[in-house]
Every structure is written in structure tokens, then in C-alpha cells.
Nucleic acid binder design. Structure first.
Lengths: 158, 158
DNA sequence: GACAGCGCGCAATATCCTTGCGAAGAGAGC
DNA sequence: GCTCTCTTCGCAAGGATATTGCGCGCTGTC
């Protein structure tokens, strides 16, 4: 874990909210010259603190009207079965996140689909078909209260 | 929902993966002149298809070693109680996402913390203290199998 | 007090963004 | 079939930005 000073944290905070800001304005925000700012930014990238940049797309605007969280139980838990499941998950573009969790269920999937028929195809044709899934329990998103692209950084402030 | 042609979809796909790409290279990727590319990009932004850009930060690199999903049940379900809960959630930076879901529990929270003591403070001092929460059920992330910043776009391809 | 290491700002060049302009193509109405 | 309109394109120019080399100043060590 590379050490980050207050300026680095301000850079990260700004970039988590405005990832496409110009280096010149970023430098002004954190009270640095543009060259010093660029060098810090490049260091954060090469050190792996910043892993990339992404445009945030409005789901409704691209016809993704339905989100679901699916809790999954695998039928078998040998390394091979898990690896096969992971590879399938990585290939399904509807799944934007998949975590192995403590608790009753093995995995939690976050899924974006156009509508219920689309979800039905995903569930029946993909998830429950030849992926080694014993049980799947779906919950649909009624309302998104918060969706922040920014990780918390407050715990690092000196 | 604004209509998006194939070029728009390619723009979105590229920008979801490389949000800080220069307009010149973006134009080359989608076989457009830089001016035409920029005008499409600005239209996607003003139409609300692209809502912003964000740097992706590696959680481990900023000392966030623990992720949890917390399922929450509210004590009361009047509009006022819900609004108060939502406002609290928006103020907690540890919570990067909060969704109201179908099923047994009212809300699902995605939480990033440094460690178990940090999570304990979050749970006891914030979530279970004066936020109107009747019950909370936590699951910790053992392994992140997939975390994609990109929404699926395949369903729109002609 | 001298020295090394680090991070900074300045300045110059190369690259990129941004806007105005005219042309080509698609679709509507007659 | 013709024309008119609307949209989107590429080109070009000027202004802004990114990127690099260089020298200075600060800090900690010996």
C-alpha cells in the first residue's frame, strides 16, 4: 500500500467525482502546477491506486429498466466447479458484479437487464443451465437510494 | 430514452472501459473525425446518457480491506421514516450503494470499511443508532469474482 | 555544514480541443 | 421525381492543454 499524502487524497477525491477533468483544472483544484499534478497522477496510475476511468451511463437511457440481486448457491464446491462458474459469470455481460459472501448463500450477483422477459432468459438459459448452480434467489431493485462511484477516503485524512 | 445508433453504442462501450481517453483517439476507434466524435459525445452528455466520469480506485490501495453487504429492515415504513433513513444513508460515505429491494428485507447496503473495528463502529454508531433500523443482517465479501464498471449494451445492437 | 533525495515550478514544444463553415445524405411533402 | 429541410459529416484554424527537460529549494542524514 503506497503512502498517500493529503494532496494525493484530494486528487483521488476530485477524480472519483470528475474523472474526465483536465489536468490543468485538476492542478488548480489542488493548488499545484500542472506538471507536478500530472506527475502525481501518473504515479497514482502506475502504482495501481487508480486502476482506470469509466464513463457512468444512465441505465434507463440504454434500456436497462430492471436491476436484480441474485443470491446463488453452487451445487458443488470443488475448485473445478467454482472455476467453471467464475468463468461463466465473467462472460455474462448482464452481471456487473459478483462477490463470494459469508452467510447462507455462496455468491451475490448484481444483474442489469432490460425487463422481466430478459431476466427470465438470463435466469433460465444461463444461470440455471449448466453453470453448476443448485439454487438461486432473486430480489429486484424497487428504488436506488444511493449509487456512488466514490470509495470513502475519510479514514485516511490526517 | 434518446435513440442511439451503432456509433453511439461503440462510443459508450469505449468510454465505459477507458473514460479518460482523448477525443482524438476515441474518434479513431469509432472511425469518425474528431469534431463529429466530440459533438456526439457532448450530445450523449447533455441528453443524460452519460451522467459523469469517475476514476476507479483500488480499495486495498486506500486501506479499504473489508467490504460488506448489509440487509436492512426498517422499524417503521411511513414516508417520514423512510426519508430520514435515506438522508442518513446519503451522508454515510462508507455506503457506496443502497437499494430498496423486493423480498424479506427492505434495503441492501454495499459498504466499504478499513477493517472489522471500522465496520463495528459503522454498524453500532451509525446504522443501528437513530436511523430507524429494526434489523440488520451483514454478509462480508470473501472474494470479488467480478466488478465491472460497464453496463451491458449488447441488447441494443441491431 | 555538506550532501543526497525528493518534489516543486517554469518554459517550450507537441498534441489536442473547439468552433465555424460548407457539403453530402435521408426523409417529408407536393 | 423534385425540392426543401434537417441532420451529420469532414476540414481547417486558433486557442487551450499535455508533456518533457531543467534548475531551484526543502528535508533529513551523516
Amino acid at each position: 500500500m503506497p503512502k498517500l499524502d493529503r494532496t494525493d487524497l484530494r486528487l483521488l477525491a476530485v477524480l472519483q467525482g470528475e474523472g474526465r477533468i483536465t489536468n490543468a483544472e485538476l492542478a488548480e483544484r489542488v493548488s499545484l502546477s500542472s506538471s507536478a499534478c500530472l506527475r502525481r497522477l501518473q504515479r497514482l496510475e502506475t502504482d495501481g491506486v487508480i486502476t482506470g476511468y469509466a464513463a457512468q451511463v444512465e441505465p434507463q437511457a440504454v434500456g436497462l429498466g430492471l436491476q436484480a440481486f441474485v443470491r446463488v448457491q453452487l451445487a458443488r464446491h470443488e475448485a473445478g466447479a467454482i472455476e467453471r462458474f467464475v468463468e461463466k459469470v465473467e462472460g455474462w455481460e448482464e452481471v456487473v458484479a459478483c462477490h463470494a459472501l459469508t452467510g447462507d448463500m455462496d455468491y451475490l450477483l448484481h444483474v442489469y437487464v432490460a425487463d422481466l422477459p430478459h431476466f427470465s432468459r438470463f435466469l433460465l438459459d444461463r444461470l440455471l443451465n449448466d453453470a453448476g448452480v443448485a439454487d438461486a434467489n432473486s430480489s429486484f431493485v424497487l428504488r436506488t437510494v444511493k449509487r456512488s462511484p466514490s470509495l470513502p477516503l475519510g479514514h485516511l485524512e490526517g
